[in-house]
Amino acid sequence: MRAFRIAYDGRPYHGFQRQPDVPTVESALFEALAGLGILDDADEVPQGYAAAGRTDAGVSAVAQTVAFECPDWLSPRAFNGELPAHVRAWASAAVPDDFHATYDATSRAYEYHLYAPGADPELASEAMAELAGTHDFANLTATSKDDTVRTLETATVELDGDFLVFSLRADGFLWELVRRLGSLVRAVATGAAPLSKVDRVLDPEPLPGHEGVPPASPAGLVLVDATYPGVTFARDDRGVESVREVFETKRADAATRARAVGCVERTVAGAKRDG
Rank of each mutant, 00 (worst) to 15 (best):
F247C: 03
T249I: 04
L140N: 09
P229Q: 08
V231S: 00
V87A: 05
D160G: 11
G35W: 03
P46K: 05
A57I: 07
L221T: 03
A109S: 15
L74T: 09
P208V: 00
E211F: 00
V165I: 14
V95H: 10
Q47P: 13
D225H: 01
G212M: 08
T134G: 05
K145R: 11
A78M: 00
A91E: 10
G133R: 05
E31N: 13
P12S: 11
L202A: 04
A260R: 15
T148I: 00
A85S: 12
T102C: 14
D104C: 01
G53Q: 13
V261M: 15
V222F: 15
R186P: 14
P215V: 01
E241M: 02
G118K: 04
T156G: 03
Y13N: 00
Y103R: 15
A189Q: 02
E26V: 02
L140I: 03
H14D: 06
A93W: 03
Q64W: 04
G209A: 08
E176P: 00
A119I: 14
F4L: 12
K250P: 14
H113I: 11
D40W: 13
D236T: 08
Y49E: 11
A89L: 07
T227W: 11
H14W: 12
A61N: 09
D56Y: 10
V22K: 07
D253V: 15
E205I: 09
G10P: 15
H135V: 01
G209V: 05
A116L: 04
Y49N: 08
R273A: 15
P218A: 06
D146Q: 12
E265I: 11
V222D: 02
A127D: 13
A269C: 03
V62R: 06
P229K: 05
F163C: 09
L33C: 11
H100D: 10
R259T: 13
D43V: 05
A170K: 04
P208W: 00
V264W: 14
L36R: 10
A52W: 14
D274L: 14
L195N: 03
A67K: 04
V149L: 02
H113P: 10
P46Y: 12
V264P: 02
Y115I: 02
D147S: 10
A138M: 06
A34E: 01
R200L: 07
T102W: 14
D146I: 00
V188H: 01
Y49L: 10
A193C: 01
T156L: 03
A94C: 15
D274A: 13
V224L: 03
L207E: 03
A7V: 07
D97W: 14
D41R: 08
L159M: 01
D237W: 03
A91Y: 08
E248F: 13
P12L: 04
P23N: 07
H113D: 15
R180A: 02
P23Y: 09
F99M: 11
F68M: 10
A260G: 07
G35T: 05
E265A: 14
D97T: 13
R108T: 12
T267D: 14
T143N: 14
R169N: 06
V157R: 07
G118H: 01
V231T: 10
V213K: 01
T148G: 12
T55I: 13
S27Q: 11
V213W: 00
F79L: 04
Y8K: 09
G262Q: 10
A252W: 07
V45I: 12
A260M: 13
P71Q: 08
E82C: 15
T55D: 09
M128R: 13
D120M: 03
T134K: 15
A34M: 06
